[in-house]
Amino acid sequence: MNSIAESRADRIFNRINVFLMVIVTLVFLYPLLFIVSASISDPDAVLRGEVWLWPKGFTLVPYVKVFQNSEFFLSYWNTIAYTVVGTLVNVALTIMAAYPLSRKDFYGRNVLTVLFTFTMFFSGGLIPLYIVIQKLHLLNNFWVMILPSAVSIFNIIVTRTYFQTSIPEEVYQAAEIDGCSRIGVLTRIVLPLSGPILAVMVLFYGVGHWNSYFNALIFLNERDMFPLQLILREILVQNDTQNLMSSSSANYIIDSTQYGTSIKYAVIIISSLPVLVLYPFVQRYFVKGVMIGAIKG
């Protein structure tokens, strides 16, 4: 392509395009950069609106204040627990559904696929689900954060498609002629060949758990079980930074007006940190996942 000389119109197009893309990139990047800068800047400078891009002054006090708060810490730990256990359950169930459905000789796969997929387009709604959860005595239970979102049909379809397209039928036949059981084929052949899709699933489900707040909002009311996002909601949305201030301190009100905004920025950073730190390393897996999904559509 490079061998063909570009026309004048194309050169103009390219310049405009590059210019547009730089602007678009800045639009995506700027808010994130601003939050980082503001969180480590002098709180007064932030309040006066002097921070535009680079930090003004330097302080880690907002971070210290956040880390001194035991409730925040506990919720952080809760979220880690929900994310780890939840993701394990998610991935296990996804494989358990995707592998049988990927086998062409699995009698009933069409019926089951329709049965599963239908839930994507129609649901009982919030209240009937709530009644079911209540009946199962799952309210205020650790497992209510895991079970109601135990598997996603979309991810099942993506995984099934991966199994079907990346592992040739002959491999199955060869293994089974050699006396490998169906489960043996799964553990010895399919799973070792499915590293990329498993990584994708772990990431999709993991981020989902990390970021979710709604199930916790309706199904949990004991504060020491709250996940991070619910505590974040109190701090960021309900504007309740007092909780984070050491209530023993006499300058508690001064604290909250002075540090309130900075603490919000710090909280945003701390809560998004795991995702944002891992993100550059794993984003190609995410992209891969979407592309596998796109094959099937």
Partner: peptide, 13 residues
């Protein structure tokens, strides 16, 4: 890569 990043921010944040 930069344009993907906001997607991973939670709704609360």
């Amino acid at each position: 890569n930069i344009s993907y990043a906001p997607y991973f921010i939670s709704q609360v944040v």
